[in-house]
């Protein structure tokens, strides 16, 4: 059983790679989409709204299948599982990050906006010096929570035969014929990693709350 551990580890590394890339791209795209969504011009905010709602209100697995099987035919490209996975999860995360960004900014009291305007600050200065510094603190927490969710979602890529941890689990099971041991170990690996990450986030949350008080 333990001889197969390296296989599992290589799967874990696959999962982490996808997580990292999807986080990066998702964040960048989300940062682009969010201002569109918050714009007062309907021809900007409406499409952004549709984009966000489509990716939040469809199951991630459906999105993955669509990008892996449908998209290549539509646009005459070829996607390897890795690429389809990264594209899907980046776009999906971007929708959530856009909402996090929007909620973070809109959660800053009106008074802050009004005070800045009263001094005569321009929009960009106001954002840079007053609004964003306050909003970022709250968004960092949501970012970490989303990152953990994303890592959990990477398990879906096993269904399109990308060699992540869950996929390697099925591979090892088919070789050893011991589903109980293999899947339990893999489940435990996921649980340990995610629990540790969650505890870290919660500790950060408490530190933030104390600083605010």
């Amino acid at each position: 059983m333990w001889d197969n551990f390296p296989t599992l580890l290589s799967g874990l590394s696959g999962s982490l790679q996808i997580t990292g890339l999807a986080l990066l791209f998702g964040l960048l795209i989300g940062l682009l989409v969010a201002p569109l969504r918050m714009s007062s011009r309907p021809w900007l905010s409406a499409p952004a709204g549709v984009y966000i709602n489509v990716f939040r209100n469809t199951p991630p697995l459906v999105q993955l299948f669509w990008f892996f099987y449908a998209f290549p035919i539509l646009f005459d490209v070829s996607f390897r599982p890795f690429e389809a996975a990264v594209v899907t999860l980046s776009l999906q995360s971007s929708a959530f990050f856009a909402e996090v960004f929007r909620a973070g900014i809109q959660s800053i009291e009106r008074g802050q906006w009004e005070a800045s305007k009263a001094i005569g600050m321009g929009y960009f200065t106001m954002m840079r010096r007053i609004i964003l510094p306050q909003a970022v603190k709250r968004m960092v927490l949501a970012f970490f929570e989303r990152a953990i969710e994303l890592f959990k979602t990477t398990t879906l890529v096993s269904t399109i035969a990308f060699a992540d941890l869950l996929y390697q689990a099925t591979v090892v099971t088919s070789q050893t014929f011991r589903p109980l041991e293999v899947y339990t170990v893999v489940a435990a690996m996921y649980i340990l990693i995610i629990t540790a990450a969650s505890l870290g986030v919660r500790r950060y949350e408490m530190r933030l709350a104390r600083a605010d008080a």
Binding site: L156, A187, Y190
Partner: peptide
């Protein structure tokens, strides 16, 4: 809460 749903299903 922490185990991925697909892992739970498969298990």
């Amino acid at each position: 809460r922490n185990a991925p749903v697909l892992v739970q299903l498969v298990w």
